[in-house]
């Protein structure tokens, strides 16, 4: 693989026609097979857009998932939904509440991963929400302690990861954006993650965004993962020196695209960000990605941002090769 592999965090904007199909399905105007067919088409489209942009490691844009916690909670036993909760601006999700023991029912991601893999020759990254974030972004009406809740979810995630690996996944990203939320629970998040990946034979990454990195840095080397994929463009590439100071030993998935801003970054801005990163980390330890999922952007803008990301990365790559 080339230096500075480019990838995405996972989600991508749904095409308007898929939103329309979902709306028809919810109103009973089309059946499940028609919706499924539309989902398949949307996945192919996203994979093609990732390829056209030149992204090295692709995803299907999580077309089949409305939201990263809701999707899993809907497929597990023990959750209940009360309605939408705002996260910021007009972004919201149907935040689940654990009301009984959480139990695994059936594979949740295997078919979507297998389908994506059959549609592209690129390496496909599987993405899954991590146990700590699943717990922290749910209400808890059942468990007597957060540890009990997180570890139960770790077993669920582990079962799904093993199924994904059996289906051929060799790179899995576990999304843990809640990781830096509670300073006193980072150890718990780490224990949950390590339990989830125990015995899982694949490369893993942990994705985190929009938090205070200084509180989690002392723990990162203890996560049984090879990579952390983090948001940096939103924070204007600050905090990099903290990684150097903390003797960070993992690969860094470096966020160079602000997913909550419609302005498309220039190739030069991406190049500048990566060069700042390389002041602190060796090039063979760096992957390049957007800050987070791109789903909240208009599709055309998301695509242009990926193109800028790839072009900026290629520029740095060629400079490194010439050295």
């Amino acid at each position: 693989m080339e230096l500075l592999p480019t990838t995405v965090i996972g989600s991508y904007p749904r095409p308007n026609w898929l939103k329309h199909a979902l709306s028809l399905y919810r109103r009973g105007k089309i059946g499940e097979s028609e919706l499924e067919s539309a989902m398949d088409d949307a996945c192919k489209l996203v994979l093609k857009e990732h390829e056209l942009a030149g992204v090295d490691i692709v995803t299907d844009g999580e077309m089949r998932r409305d939201e990263m916690v809701e999707f899993f909670a809907e497929r597990l036993e023990g959750y209940r939904f009360y309605g939408d909760v705002r996260v910021w601006g007009t972004a919201h999700y149907n935040k689940p509440a654990a009301i009984a023991p959480i139990r695994y029912k059936a594979p949740m991601l295997v078919s979507e991963f297998s389908f994506a893999r059959s549609c592209t020759s690129k390496r496909v990254k599987a993405t899954i929400t991590g146990p700590y974030t699943l717990a922290d972004w749910s209400y808890n009406e059942y468990y007597g302690s957060k540890r009990e809740f997180v570890m139960e979810l770790a077993h669920v995630v582990r079962q799904e990861l093993r199924n994904l690996v059996s289906a051929g996944a060799d790179f899995v990203q576990v999304d843990e954006p809640a990781l830096p939320t509670h300073v006193n629970e980072i150890e718990l998040a780490k224990d949950g993650f390590n339990e989830a990946v125990r015995g899982v034979d694949a490369k893993t990454a942990v994705h985190v965004c929009y938090g205070d990195y200084s509180v989690m840095l002392p723990y990162l080397n203890e996560f049984n993962t090879s990579q952390f994929a983090l948001e940096f463009a939103n924070r204007r590439f600050s905090d990099l020196e903290l990684f150097k100071q903390s003797d960070f030993k993992k690969e860094l998935g470096f966020g160079v695209i602000d997913v909550h801003n419609r302005r498309v970054e220039t190739q030069e801005e991406v190049e500048h960000g990566i060069k700042l990163c390389l002041n602190y980390l060796e090039p063979d330890k760096v992957y390049v990605n957007p800050d987070c999922g791109l789903k909240l952007l208009p599709k055309e803008i998301a695509f242009q941002k990926l193109v800028a990301m790839v072009n900026g990365t290629q520029k740095v790559r060629s400079q490194l090769t010439r050295r």
Binding site: V87, W88, P180, T181, H182, Y210, G211, R235, R236
Partner: peptide, 11 residues
């Protein structure tokens, strides 16, 4: 920039 609001899943 977008930042988490205390220890809540709200930004």
């Amino acid at each position: 920039s977008l930042i988490r609001f205390f220890d809540n899943n709200v930004y």
